[in-house]
Computed example of a mutant assay.
Amino acid sequence: MDHPIFELKNISYTYRDKMETTPALKDINLSIHKGDFVALVGPNGSGKTTLIKLILGVLKLQSGEIYINGNSLRNFQAWQEVGYVSQKSNSFSKGFPATVSEVVLSGLTKAKGLFKRFRKEDYRKLEEVLDLLNISHLKDKNISLLSGGQTQRVFIARALINNPSILVLDEPTVGIDAKHVKEFYDVLFRLKEQSVTILLVTHDIGVVVDHADEVACLNEHLHFHGTNHEFKNLGEAELSKIYGFPLQLVSHDHERACCE
Rank of each mutant, 00 (worst) to 15 (best):
H3I: 11
P4V: 10
E7L: 13
L8D: 03
I11G: 03
I11W: 03
Y13I: 09
Y13D: 10
Y13H: 14
K18D: 11
T22M: 12
A24S: 15
A24T: 04
A24V: 01
K26I: 10
D27R: 15
S31P: 12
K34R: 15
F37C: 05
G42Q: 01
G42W: 02
G45E: 06
G47A: 07
T50N: 05
G57D: 00
V58E: 06
K60C: 06
S63A: 09
E65V: 12
I66G: 06
F76W: 11
Q77D: 15
A78K: 14
E81Y: 04
E81H: 09
V82H: 05
V82A: 00
V82W: 08
S86F: 11
S91D: 13
S93G: 14
S93I: 11
K94Q: 14
T99G: 14
V100G: 01
L105C: 02
L105V: 06
G107L: 03
L108N: 12
K110H: 09
A111M: 13
A111D: 03
F115T: 10
F118H: 10
F118P: 07
R119Q: 15
D122M: 13
K125N: 14
E128I: 13
L132S: 09
L133C: 04
I135A: 00
S136L: 15
H137Q: 09
D140K: 15
I143C: 00
S144V: 10
S144W: 13
L146A: 04
L146Q: 06
L146I: 12
G149I: 05
Q150M: 02
A159Y: 08
P164M: 04
I166P: 04
L167R: 00
E171H: 11
V174N: 15
V174E: 12
D186E: 09
V187K: 06
F189G: 10
K192P: 13
E193P: 02
Q194G: 08
S195V: 12
I198C: 04
L200N: 10
H203F: 06
A212F: 00
A212Y: 02
D213C: 06
V215I: 15
L218N: 02
E220V: 04
L222F: 09
H223C: 14
H223M: 07
G226K: 12
H229I: 15
K232N: 04
L234W: 02
G235Q: 10
L239H: 14
S240A: 03
F245M: 09
H252T: 05
R256Y: 13
A257E: 02
C258E: 01
